[in-house]
Simulated assay, not measured.
Amino acid sequence: MTPAPAREAERILSAAAARTGLPETMLAQGMLADSRGLPAPARAERALRQAVQASRTVDTPPATSAPRLLPHEADVERALGRFFDARLRLAAAPADETARRAFEDCMFTLCVLMAEPCAYAAVREAVQYTEG
Rank of each mutant, 00 (worst) to 15 (best):
M1G: 12
T2F: 02
P3N: 08
P3C: 05
A4G: 07
P5H: 09
P5A: 13
E8G: 01
E10M: 14
R11G: 07
S14N: 12
A16E: 02
A18C: 10
A18I: 07
R19D: 11
P23N: 07
P23G: 06
T25N: 09
Q29I: 01
Q29A: 09
G30K: 05
G30P: 02
D34Y: 06
D34F: 05
S35T: 09
R36L: 14
G37N: 06
L38M: 10
P39R: 09
A40V: 02
A40H: 00
P41K: 08
A42V: 12
R43Q: 15
A44V: 04
E45K: 08
R46Y: 08
Q50P: 06
Q50W: 10
Q50R: 13
Q50E: 14
V52G: 00
Q53D: 15
A54Y: 04
A54N: 06
R56Q: 15
T57M: 11
D59M: 11
A63H: 12
S65E: 12
A66L: 15
P67W: 05
R68Q: 14
L70V: 05
P71W: 02
P71F: 03
D75T: 07
D75S: 08
E77T: 13
R78P: 00
A79C: 09
R82W: 09
F83S: 00
A86T: 04
R87E: 08
R87M: 06
A91G: 12
A92K: 12
A95L: 13
E97L: 15
T98W: 06
T98H: 10
A99Y: 01
A99K: 03
A99L: 01
R100F: 10
A102W: 03
A102T: 14
F103T: 04
D105P: 03
C106R: 01
C106M: 00
M107I: 13
L110V: 10
C111K: 15
C111E: 09
L113I: 07
A115W: 11
A115I: 13
E116N: 05
E116S: 06
E116T: 03
E116W: 05
C118S: 13
Y120M: 06
A121R: 02
A122I: 00
A122P: 06
V123W: 09
R124E: 15
V127F: 05
Y129N: 04
E131W: 13
E131L: 15
G132C: 13
